[in-house]
Design a protein around this nucleic acid. Structure first.
Ligand SMILES: [Mn+2]
Ligand SMILES: [Mn+2]
Ligand SMILES: [Zn+2]
Ligand SMILES: [Zn+2]
Lengths: 144, 144
DNA sequence: CCAAGAAATTAGAATATATCTAATATGAGA
DNA sequence: TCTCATATTAGATATATTCTAATTTCTTGG
């Protein structure tokens, strides 16, 4: 697949392509979802080789630092992480905490005065509400 | 001050106005910042009466449920919380994690197709970069 | 190929954050 | 004032994350 691409991006960030690190990156690209460290740790160990919890966290930290992976914080839930792909916004479910991607579109910058001396790097929209699974089923009616 | 207002909003949410709960709410309104549970716990106990850690967390949970307080998650940092006031966006510092308010302005909704069956409750912009304190001082130059 | 240093991994301990338990206390309506 | 649903408490527990220091594995130059 894109195993060569993964190797290249690691090398490009001067990170050794170890089996454990590769496994984390491959998992994130394959899933294309927002995973917790615990999920990643479990998943890469279901296959081979055995990777420790510390290594999973170390690798996630390094991959984030290298810009290949992004942290996604969710209120009241464990931190999540995703492979950086095309730019997008996020939808976060109030009920189950699931994070889903929303196709990117440009958003207006704040009035320059609002930012003051701050240095702006990026901006992103967060939508909140109920995901498809948590939304009341179509056609159902609530009784008052 | 607005101590009567705090009492009223607690009563309106059917929450007893206990000294501990009042102290949490008063602290958040007075600070008008984004505080961690540990900060709140320390602050309300610096004064009187002694409040336990469990009570601090319980009260924050109840106040969030009642809609008087809002959770703010920050990647790689302890959760924060703020009194709900006027609607606003957020700026989060890459370096120190500080969360600052940005004056509200309307943002365009996503194309209806992007949302599918999801139920949208709110949307908010997150700006990232360097806060005033972390941005390079005005006039300084980086050497290549 | 080999030696040597740099980078990465490991198990388990340590820390940080948050929730639970069950005994006790208290606010507020009747 | 009486009553009891609600709230508080200390401490235990659970969960999430980082640290430590010993060991292993890459990589590079000879
Ligand atoms: Mn995403
Ligand atoms: Mn805010
Ligand atoms: Zn959901
Ligand atoms: Zn800062």
């Amino acid at each position: 697949m894109d195993s060569e691409a993964i190797k290249q991006s690691l090398k490009g960030s001067r990170l050794r392509c170890t089996p454990q690190r590769y496994a984390v990156m491959a998992f994130l690209m394959r899933q294309n979802r927002h995973s917790t460290a615990a999920e990643i740790f479990a998943a890469v160990n279901r296959v081979d080789p055995r990777s420790s919890r510390a290594t999973t966290y170390n690798n996630l930290r390094d991959l984030v630092k290298a810009g290949l992976v992004r942290d996604v914080a969710v209120e009241g839930r464990a931190a999540r992480v995703e492979a950086k792909g095309v730019r997008h916004h996020h939808f976060i479910c109030d009920r189950c905490g699931m994070v889903e991607d929303i196709e990117w579109y440009n958003v207006p910058r704040p009035a320059s005065g609002s930012l003051g001396r701050r240095v702006l790097r990026e901006c992103e929209l967060i939508f909140r509400g109920l995901c498809t699974k948590c939304a009341p089923a179509r056609g159902s009616r609530r009784v008052s």
